[in-house]
Design a protein around this nucleic acid. Sequence first.
DNA 1: TTGTAGGCGTTATCAA
DNA 2: TTGATAACGCCTACAA
Lengths: 342, 342
Amino acid sequence: MVKPTVHDIAREAGVSLSTVDRVLNGRTDVRPKNAERVRAAVEKLGYVRDTYAANLAKQRRYRFLFVLPEGPNHFVETIAAAVHEAASAQVADRVDVEVMFVNAADPHAVVERLKQLNLATLDGVAIMVPETPQVRDAIAHIKSAGVYVVAFVSDLPNSKCDHFVGIDNFSAGKTAGALLGRFLRNEAGSILVVTNSMVARDSIERRFGLDEVLSRDFPRLKALPTVEFHDDPQRIRVTLDHAVADQADLKAIYSMGSGNAAMLDALRENAQLSHLIVVAHDLTAVTRQALLDDEIDAVIAQNVGHLVRSALRVLRAKCDKTLIFEAQEQIRIEIIVRENLY
Amino acid sequence: MVKPTVHDIAREAGVSLSTVDRVLNGRTDVRPKNAERVRAAVEKLGYVRDTYAANLAKQRRYRFLFVLPEGPNHFVETIAAAVHEAASAQVADRVDVEVMFVNAADPHAVVERLKQLNLATLDGVAIMVPETPQVRDAIAHIKSAGVYVVAFVSDLPNSKCDHFVGIDNFSAGKTAGALLGRFLRNEAGSILVVTNSMVARDSIERRFGLDEVLSRDFPRLKALPTVEFHDDPQRIRVTLDHAVADQADLKAIYSMGSGNAAMLDALRENAQLSHLIVVAHDLTAVTRQALLDDEIDAVIAQNVGHLVRSALRVLRAKCDKTLIFEAQEQIRIEIIVRENLY
DNA sequence: TTGTAGGCGTTATCAA
DNA sequence: TTGATAACGCCTACAA
């Protein structure tokens, strides 16, 4: 019961190795009759290609690129760290990984950088930027060069990506809502929702999820209009001060995206806020410490190591034209409290 | 900057391929001077072995065995399913996986089965049974035959295992306590703790974790003595009925191990229990449905797919005498509510 | 103690 | 359109 090889197929089909290889890899023309015999032999013997041997013969190396948003952002920093960690672990696996930072807030700048890529030196790209028409076109261009593209962390539903590696942000928002609802059992009141809006689509979906769960399961809780503070710490401070003054029934804060550090700073400055339930997104050095210090009650997170490894596995599978193991590539929405922090 | 091969090492060191191979694999004697030159060349060129090429040459196959507790148990069933799923996905990766079920409740039976193993046909074993002196000896025996052993799900701290794949149950218990404390904000009362005690050590550790968190952070909540019902549904029904009668302040149930189905059945039969907060362990068909039906508030889980793949990766790394990527093998304590169910 | 030659499963090159 | 033959990086006889 050993695994059949190309030799076995050749013998069974009564042709040479090369002919087998040709039909297996769809190279030059093969007489239909022979092609059929090869396919029959493959079927009969249950042949599956040994990818590693193939890569050895091809001297294949996978060249992948991560395109990440630049600028100070703790979450992106943890991702970049995970990429470098995975890269060094994967170097033995014939994969070379690079990282490129782009100004995600400027669609034209993003596209400019993407257009400059030497696609001939690339097998796959994992891209984390907000979707714009320009980005959509740039991705189509990359793909037309035979380079695989996965949407990374932020989905690009209208682009022709090969895969999306990340969580369903609608469900993430619902999860946050469910936690807030349970943490505030038997209580009524309002919830302050803040975000930096850096990656707009994600925040919007999370907000929808939050609203759906609150209105359905916890109507006693009311989420206030989303406050966006565009990298302006002052803005959030003012917002919080106003909220505590205006909303006597303020019970919780839901921080939907980046900017947790500013939010926490503001929180610390106003003693009246210390009793609030706080749910935030993304496990970073900042939120980790805040969990330990009991300033944040729960963090909704996605495991960055898993994200990165999943992107690499998916890209490799695409290159090998091999099936991906769906269950393994499912990125989970993690709930982190102090006690299950890792 | 291509990866150096054994050829490069041989040339650099001025010796033949076989000599390089010999020092790389510590085979027969090599003159110290040559050995040193080879090592220097390896160091200088930064050589790392291509494991896949090596396995190809060796025609290596990894033969692994999972030893799981038999008997009706939803959690073990999901593990077995994950093993078979991983096995078929890994067949291309030169690994053969088998599963053996043992009567974990009977240490002698377990040892008997372990002793019967043909260790010559095995490279590694992942073993999920409670630790007993007999088991400890059996593991020493397996290891002395050159077969690698990982403790799986249940730790075997006093045995000579190569690794433990699973969660820290003390932290898991703390996580449960933290959730109960937060779900019962501003409330005082008692918590019923139940377990089947099938895997004793795990339940004990979870109980310790629970108690620590409650006494430290939520002293207003009191956990009742652990009720063990040994596969006896009747037992838990009676327990619950008594609890609701005796404990007017009963607020929650913490189900520490298997037997969630029986617990839920009992719960459904007593309308007075429907308002209780319920936290359970392990994501199975039963707990999944209960989450959807709002009968369970949260499940503490470990991803079985991750568990199985981690065990396989670790065993392979041991066989290859290669380093494991610690971060990837860290099994997380997952908190699952209805909204982040997967 | 050391080196040479061949093979693992696949692909690439060339000539037929 | 097909088939030898020689790689790829490593390991294992066997010979020296």
